[in-house]
Design a protein around this nucleic acid. Structure first.
Length: 475
DNA sequence: TCTGGGGTCCTAGGACCC
DNA sequence: TCTGGGGTCCTAGGACCC
């Protein structure tokens, strides 16, 4: 038995979760989509739903659902491919608001974060407050935060407050959408007990099955089963963790600034790749993308990982650890190629991935590799054969034909800012509207109209940025 | 029209070392 | 000549999360 503090006495940890984030950003950016079903995800034949707006969820559409199924369930929705630059912009704004509450902000993804209020400017007041006063202060801070987010982005967020990360996350789930829930310290087991085991983070479909076969269906069942049985069923670490959670104990601290431990890129192909040469060319392309991301992050890595998903969805990885960390494209490409040449591709390859792990803080590679790279860069020769020889089977390749993606931001010389509603048979349809305009009109152009070009995402609400923006600061 | 993309953590076996 | 044991690194796979 441990006697250290496992749950704080004040609900000073909050978990923020943006509601239907990607879809909500799209609706905020595109006035014509407000109040309508919006589905963001992969639009190809093998795509899945990333986020569905609440309007689309009413039709049964949800995350991770194959896009084909979503189209059947909700054919009138707007289907958009993601605009991650826009999501990142909004995310940074929101995370900035969180950091006003405390330096201890732990982002879990673009739309989710923990905040430890005790570590921030309100920490002393919280520490000094009695029970009721402290809770009222937390509630007030959380409501102010939600209002700030709404004012600055037009988006709604749900917030959970509790004495631990576990319970704060449970609370924000209960608060969804557009709500605030506080779970009082001491009430953990009362709240958790009746919940299905799947409500606990870390219990997915596989673990649920194992538990169900053992007759354990609710969190109260887990608590009753005891640690020994859970370790027996789930293994050392998982079993112990699940037991702790089941009795409402969680002393994991909120930690800011976690460096990434790996960088990887992967592609699922519209049509399975059949021959080795093609596989190796795609590996080259992926390795180049991976290296670009690695360098943009100022990191280097020691272990190169190749991922292969075959025609039957069986997935394997092969890895090789180098003598030292590198960010050299030639080294990483050669390693990935070597790994790829060793795997059996009979039947076809559905997905390829290239990753780098065991990251080092900065590049410290041997001078030879560095010299080779500088040579290549200064010359700018070697435009990588894969790019020139055309992209995948059935891909409308080539820089001459721009690839307009539904949802994409564009700018037209005559009509101004808008977004791609659809394209096909040599034409592209654009709706001309902005986050601060009314619903806009649609026009169709030839896909190669020289007046039409890709554009950066517009800010949702101007904090100085938005052209034509009215008085939004009045509060 | 079956099943994305980018991550994290854990387990387990074999190699190797003291 | 019966069985040593513990720690660390590498590799592969699997579960899970958003």
């Amino acid at each position: 038995m441990r006697h250290d503090r496992q749950v704080r006495s004040l609900p000073s940890i909050i978990h923020l979760d943006m509601d239907a984030f990607f879809a909500a950003v799209e609706q905020a950016s595109k006035p014509s989509l407000r109040g309508k079903p919006v589905i963001v995800g992969g639009l190809g034949g093998r795509g899945v739903v990333s986020t569905a707006s609440y309007e689309a969820r009413r039709f049964g559409v949800h995350s991770a659902m194959p896009m084909a199924q979503a189209r059947r369930l909700c054919p009138n929705a707007a289907f958009l491919s993601g605009r991650f630059e826009a999501y990142r912009q909004v995310s940074e704004l929101v995370m900035g608001l969180l950091r006003e509450l405390s330096p201890l902000v732990q982002p879990l993804s673009l739309d989710e974060a923990f905040v430890d209020l005790e570590a921030g400017p309100y920490g002393p007041a919280l520490a000094a407050a009695d029970h009721g006063t402290g809770e009222r202060l937390v509630l007030a801070l959380a409501e102010d935060l939600r209002a700030d987010i709404q004012r600055r982005t037009g988006l709604t967020a749900s917030v959970g407050a509790a004495g631990s990360k576990l319970m704060a996350k449970i609370a924000s789930e209960q608060a969804k959408p557009d709500g605030l829930v506080l779970i009082e310290p001491g009430q953990e087991r009362v709240v958790l007990g009746p919940m299905p085991v799947r409500a606990l983070p870390g219990i997915g479909p596989a673990t649920e099955q194992v538990l169900r076969r053992a007759g354990l269906n609710t969190v109260a069942d887990l608590a009753l089963a005891g640690e020994a049985e859970l370790v027996q069923l789930l293994g050392r670490a998982h079993g112990a963790g699940v037991h702790q959670m089941s009795i409402g104990l969680d002393d994991r601290p909120v930690v800011a600034d976690q460096d990434a431990k790996s960088v990887s890129v992967e592609d699922t192909f519209e049509v399975d790749l059949a021959d080795r040469e093609r596989v190796l060319r795609e590996v080259d392309v992926l390795a180049a993308r991976c290296v670009r991301r690695l360098r943009a992050a100022g990191r280097s890595g020691r272990t190169v990982v190749l991922k292969v998903r075959r025609f039957d969805f069986s997935t394997l990885t092969r890895s090789e650890t180098l003598r030292g960390p590198t960010d050299d494209e030639a080294v990483i490409t050669e390693t990935a190629r070597r790994l790829a040449s060793q795997v059996d591709i009979t039947g076809g390859v559905r997905l390829l991935g290239v990753g780098v792990a065991q990251l080092a803080d900065y590049t410290q590679e041997d001078l030879f590799a560095q010299a080779v790279r500088e040579e290549a860069e200064s010359g700018e020769q070697e435009p990588v054969a894969a790019e020139a020889e055309g992209v995948g089977a059935g891909e409308p390749a080539g820089p001459s034909t721009p690839h307009w993606m539904p949802g994409q931001d564009v700018h037209h010389g005559e009509f101004g800012p808008g977004w791609v509603q659809g394209s096909g048979v040599g034409r592209v349809t654009v709706r001309f509207e902005t986050p601060w305009s009314g619903p806009g009109r649609v026009r169709t152009f030839p896909v190669d109209d020289p007046a039409l070009e890709p554009a950066r995402p517009l800010p949702l609400r101007g904090s100085g940025g938005g052209p034509g923006e009215g008085g939004e600061t009045g509060d």
